[in-house]
């Protein structure tokens, strides 16, 4: 068994799968980082991803174009985030309550719409996104395939993480956005349009979370199934915490959780003599264990999850 696992073939396939499993978490995590920097805790990320997954599938299925599907997924994600945005920014609702309610609601919505769409019919499959192989670099042993033989969305996430990190660290606007999460009142006094920035953050949160969900459909599976995100939205929340609310930290955490998922998939593929359920719970166990590492260390924005009401004390 160990000989089977410690081969270049296994490791290379494992790393490839790890990247593929990490990308949706990284998109969702990046979206969540943006909203949390602005003080909005979007527990509804699971719903955002599920909506992105469903609408990207429906869009691609009916239009025949992956690009249209991706745009539908982004719109579907943004719609859910805006719902959370309106409830938590405009109506100052408890963000945990709103997020959980949204998640369960979206689970019902997507299940219902999917049943209508499939109408009890058999399997519906779409053509997944093609891989773009970068010559030479993809031939590097072990990591070449994982890093340089992927789809366009995977390459894009690296640049997005860099961009977001640069935005918050090096630009004035980025600092203004981040100051809202720390102290919305101070930000407001300094003339920063708090609510507008929060809404912008929520749209970005939804678009990125939507891409994360769409990735599951357009790259990983090629079809939709009920509750297909199965907790990934929450794992993305954990990735943000573990990554100490930094885009690169979040990316690292997403890779950790992605590897846990890839490991269980590869181990099932080589036929480890364990019930498949024992392996399936691995990503969730590792997420739980990783959260232990964040105990007592709160790196989150000071006013995260607290509604800001202008003029209230």
């Amino acid at each position: 068994m160990m000989q089977q696992i410690l081969t270049v073939g296994f490791l290379s396939a494992f790393l490839s799968a790890a990247v593929r499993m990490a990308v949706p978490l990284a998109y969702a995590g990046l979206g969540e980082t943006i909203s949390e920097k602005c003080g909005i805790l979007n527990i509804g990320m699971e719903g955002v991803m599920l909506s992105g997954a469903f609408f990207s599938f429906a869009g691609t299925f009916f239009s025949g174009s992956i690009l249209v599907g991706l745009l539908c997924g982004m719109a579907g994600g943004a719609a859910v985030s805006m719902l959370h945005g309106v409830l938590s920014i405009r109506l100052s609702k408890d963000q945990s309550v709103s997020g959980i309610a949204i998640n369960i609601f979206i689970l019902g919505v997507t299940s219902f719409l999917y049943k209508l769409m499939s109408g009890g019919q058999s399997y519906q499959q779409i053509e997944p996104l093609i891989k773009l192989r970068i010559p030479l670099l993809a031939d590097i042993p072990l990591i070449g395939n994982a890093l340089f033989n992927q789809d366009i969305l995977t390459y894009l996430i690296y640049f997005l993480v860099m961009g977001v990190s640069f935005f918050y660290k090096k630009t004035n606007t980025g600092l203004s956005f981040a100051s809202i999460g720390e102290s919305p009142r101070a930000a407001d006094s300094a003339g920063i349009p708090v609510y507008r920035y929060q809404y912008i953050s929520m749209v970005l949160n939804g678009v990125l979370g939507g891409i994360g969900g769409a990735y599951l459909v357009l790259v990983q599976v090629g079809n939709f199934s009920e509750n297909m995100t199965s907790g990934r939205g929450y794992i993305a929340l954990a990735a943000v915490i573990l990554g100490r609310y930094l885009p690169f930290g979040m990316l690292g955490a997403a890779f950790l959780f992605g590897s846990a998922n890839a490991l269980q998939i590869r181990l099932q593929a080589v036929g480890v003599p364990l019930p498949s359920q024992a392996l399936s719970m691995l990503p969730y166990l590792i997420t739980l264990a990783a959260l232990l590492g964040s105990a007592h260390k709160n790196h989150g924005p000071e006013s995260l999850g607290k509604p800001y009401v202008r003029g209230a004390r």
Partner: peptide, 16 residues
């Protein structure tokens, strides 16, 4: 005791 989000923990425990 450790201040870890019960929302994420309980969801992970659900899948486990």
């Amino acid at each position: 005791k450790l201040g870890i989000s019960e929302i994420i923990c309980t969801i992970m425990l659900n899948y486990i």
